[in-house]
Design a protein around this nucleic acid. Structure first.
Lengths: 290, 290
DNA sequence: AGAGGTTACGGGCAGCGTAAGGATC
DNA sequence: GATCCTTACGCTGCCCGTAACCTCT
């Protein structure tokens, strides 16, 4: 009579999602592996846990196991929280990061994370915030560093320092300005800053302003330097271009509102590491912003 | 972060007994295996659990783990009790049996046990009750079928049918009787029946009665049949010798008191199987005694 | 035919026992 | 030197992923 935590996790995930395939996705293992775990668990317990005839429905015994299994995993995360040391976290930690952060203090953060948890395998996924949100809810990433807090009861948000947006243009292009019809280069379509900026520009200058969204922030800066338009971009990332004299800041009389970021993770058992990493991200970001 | 129930069991046993060696004894594995389990557990938790400098004392973290580990094992036995089926008991079940029972309904009991729990590996150890008692407290056997209830708060006793003792002599040896100085053949030295019988004989017939203790009950019967003395032996085991006309019963005017047996097991988590087996033993014994 | 679950199979790794090696009293 | 605990090592058995198979719609 010896079952493992992995088996119980697989059991719970199948019971919750109602399918072996979905459970396998969430557990990051192959689908036959989930089948095998369930089968082994059923063998060691000597009882059928699922009724396969109508699509993996819980049997009576499976239902009885449900509560115990949850209790088990809770205990596991309590141990993780109260007795495990930093070196105990030997596993994959998947982060989703929006590009603004990836371009600023992400390296320092990863370094700090690896120093604090030396056995952690860190996997980084740079994408737009909307995609990160989805991936977080799908449990495909453990921590998301993205724009704005996520308002969902399942999510814990740690507010990060904001990024001020400033106007930039190619160095010496003294007349370029949105007021004079210059194109505006900014974030990828489908992001919140893009939409608010678009509305703001429409309200201030009418419908003729062209917006060039780019999925790469550094591409934005390079396009600004090449005088393809002016940019409303994070001040914190402009320094290298400014010091190389490729771009210059200017003031058209207003600024887009600052970008708010948060470190967000799903709550519930197993969130210990997400919580710790979010705090560390906040600390790193504060150091970075002086 | 993946620890095993086996690791927690080893941890608990070392913490309780204060030694790796003793823990290994109780867990029925070698001592290096215990070391390895503890080490692996410490590695996966990334924290030292024992302070080796002064003989395996718990560290602060080890102490914190203690309560959680106990809770874990409790949950494990709850699952065993509530969701596992009979086929789930795939393990070694060690029984200690006193010879009287081994000679009577033990085969039927083992058969019934194996039918109820087909995956059980049953190990049988026939010895005198005093030795069985020790082995039970050392956790070297899971169930003891022995004489009399064990009065200890750790032990649960299920009363079994008693065995009446009768007097037997060789068939046709009409004059053999303890009153006429015949030797008395009975149980092994160091058993309770031996002592009470000895006192009784001393009180009734004086110090001249020779007592021949034998460690084998069937040897007792054969010695009686060979007219080496008379026997005070369990009636229930006499039938084959009576029907083959090798021995006969006689009445010297009194009988030793009946033997009381019990199925005894240690209480606590993990006693599910002991409890079930004890009930089954009672049922089998009652059937045997008609 | 396609989606979802199980079975077959080969490779890697973990955990056991035996045997040898410290450390501490 | 005796008593514990740990390390070394070969072996077995488990569990994963790949790939083929089954079954129901």
């Amino acid at each position: 009579m010896n079952f493992t935590l992995d088996q119980l996790r697989a059991f719970l995930e199948v019971a919750r999602t109602g399918g072996v395939r979905k459970a396998a996705d969430r557990l990051n293992i192959t689908q036959p592996a989930v089948t095998a775990r369930i089968k082994t668990l059923e063998d060691t317990l000597g009882a059928a846990l699922f009724d396969r005839s109508s699509g993996m429905a819980l049997t009576k015994r499976g239902d009885a196991l449900l509560g115990y299994a949850e209790h088990y995993l809770e205990l596991g995360s309590l141990i993780e929280r109260d007795v495990a040391g930093p070196e105990g976290f030997t596993r994959l930690f998947r982060m989703g990061v929006s590009e603004t952060i990836a371009q600023s203090w992400l390296p320092e953060f990863v370094q700090a994370l690896r120093a604090a948890y030396p056995n952690l395998t860190v996997e980084i996924d740079v994408d737009i915030s909307r995609a990160l949100r989805e991936r977080l809810f799908e449990n495909k990433i453990d921590l998301a560093l993205l724009m704005g807090p996520l308002s969902d009861y399942r999510v814990e948000n740690v507010a990060l320092p904001t990024f001020d947006l400033r106007w930039f243009r190619a160095a010496g292009a003294t007349h370029a300005s949105p007021a004079e019809g210059a194109s505006v280069i900014t974030f990828a379509r489908d992001t919140r800053p893009f939409r608010t900026l678009k509305e703001e520009l429409l309200a201030r200058y009418g419908p003729d302003i062209a917006l060039f969204p780019s999925s790469s922030l550094s591409a934005c800066f390079r396009m600004v330097a090449a005088d393809l338009g002016v940019g409303a971009l994070p001040q914190a990332l402009a320094e290298p271009y400014l010091s190389r004299n490729e771009i210059e800041e200017f003031d058209p009389g207003w600024r887009p509102e600052a970008l708010t970021f948060s470190a967000s993770y799903l709550t519930g058992p197993g969130a210990t590491l997400g919580q710790a990493a979010a705090s560390l991200a906040l600390k790193t970001a504060e150091d970075f912003h002086k």
